[in-house]
């Protein structure tokens, strides 16, 4: 029983990471209808930035805040310079740009920081939760993720800027007629999603060690999380992440071992999607001829 509980709890913790990256994807998806395949690699790069800042002597939280700010700015910059000019290009061409970004960030991380894994610090390493069921850092991950989700919810729900971003995502033409600067809203969405990704990277790095491929597996689970939750629902992405994380752990522990757990978890997810194609919280799309 203890094994089961601890596997579920650690599944929730890794699921919170998938959920955060999935949430970052959903934020870009709702305004562009595209999946940013470079999301994970951008997060890895951000985590390296945080590592560098800590290595030069910044305290954890200062490096954390600076990294989130830098990632936000970089996200805005990428959208404005690279993607905004391609707004009218065919959809698949834009997908290729995402793959290009994937390669750029993946290769740059390796070239700058090398391919050896780094030990990444956690501010709660010294603490104990007083139980063997869940580690201190896992609990920390869950808390940070929930806090971030709450802040994002408050921002989108109660601020004028959040309202403008939602309007721009939903109906860009109508939003620009309301004086909303739609292009900038898209860029802010990219910035926010890069910042959320950076937080996810900093959270996951102490668990998996920091190396250039750190996020490749996470990306796929995050994608699955976003789809399970319903691709256009931010809270859905988070819940989807938890489901995927727990499922992954249980499959690995009880069914097939670690060799095939990725495969089996994905097959299960796809099976779920075949029966519930819009995900758990997604809005049903009405098709028009």
């Amino acid at each position: 029983m203890d094994l089961f509980v601890s596997q579920v709890l650690s599944g929730v913790a890794s699921g919170a990471i998938y959920g955060c990256v999935g949430l970052a994807m959903v934020m870009i998806f709702t305004s562009t209808e595209k999946i940013n395949f470079a999301q994970g690699e951008m997060a890895t790069f951000s985590t390296y930035v945080a590592w560098t800042l800590m290595t030069v002597g910044l305290p954890y939280w200062a490096a954390f805040a600076a990294t989130v700010a830098i990632s936000f700015a970089a996200g805005v910059l990428i959208q404005r310079t690279l993607l905004a000019p391609l707004r009218d290009a065919p959809e698949m061409s834009q997908v290729i740009v995402f793959f290009g970004l994937f390669l750029v960030f993946n290769s740059a991380s390796g070239a700058i920081w090398g391919y050896l894994p780094f030990d990444f610090p956690s501010p709660v390493k010294a603490f104990s939760t007083g139980t063997t069921l869940i580690g201190a850092h896992q609990l920390f991950i869950i808390l940070v993720a929930v806090l971030m989700l709450t802040l994002l919810f408050l921002f989108f729900r109660y601020t004028s800027l959040g309202l403008c971003m939602r309007a721009a995502a939903q109906n860009p033409v109508s939003a620009s007629l309301m004086g909303v600067r739609v292009g900038w809203m898209l860029a802010l969405g990219w910035g926010l999603s890069a910042a959320v990704g950076a937080v996810a990277g900093i959270m996951v790095a102490p668990v998996v060690f920091l190396e250039p491929q750190m996020m490749v597996g996470v990306l796929l689970y995050a994608f699955a999380a976003a789809l399970v939750g319903g691709i256009d629902s931010p809270p859905g992405a988070f819940v989807g992440g938890i489901i995927v994380g727990v499922l992954e752990n249980l499959v690995g522990t009880y069914l097939v071992g670690t060799d095939l757990k990725l495969t089996v978890a994905l097959v299960l997810i796809i099976a779920v999607l075949i029966f519930k194609p819009t995900g758990l919280f997604g809005s049903r799309r009405v098709a028009r001829v």
């Binding site: 690279l82 000019p85 391609l86 290009a89 065919p90 061409s93 834009q94 290729i96 740009v97 793959f99 290009g100 970004l101 994937f102 390669l103 750029v104 993946n106 290769s107 740059a108 390796g110 070239a111």
Partner: peptide
């Protein structure tokens, strides 16, 4: 020699940029 992946990525982006329809 040191950044082949990044250059490849940049070349891809440039290809899409100048030939959006391939």
């Amino acid at each position: 020699k040191s950044l082949p992946g990044a250059i490849y990525g940049v070349l891809l982006i440039l290809l899409v940029y100048f030939m959006p329809k391939g």
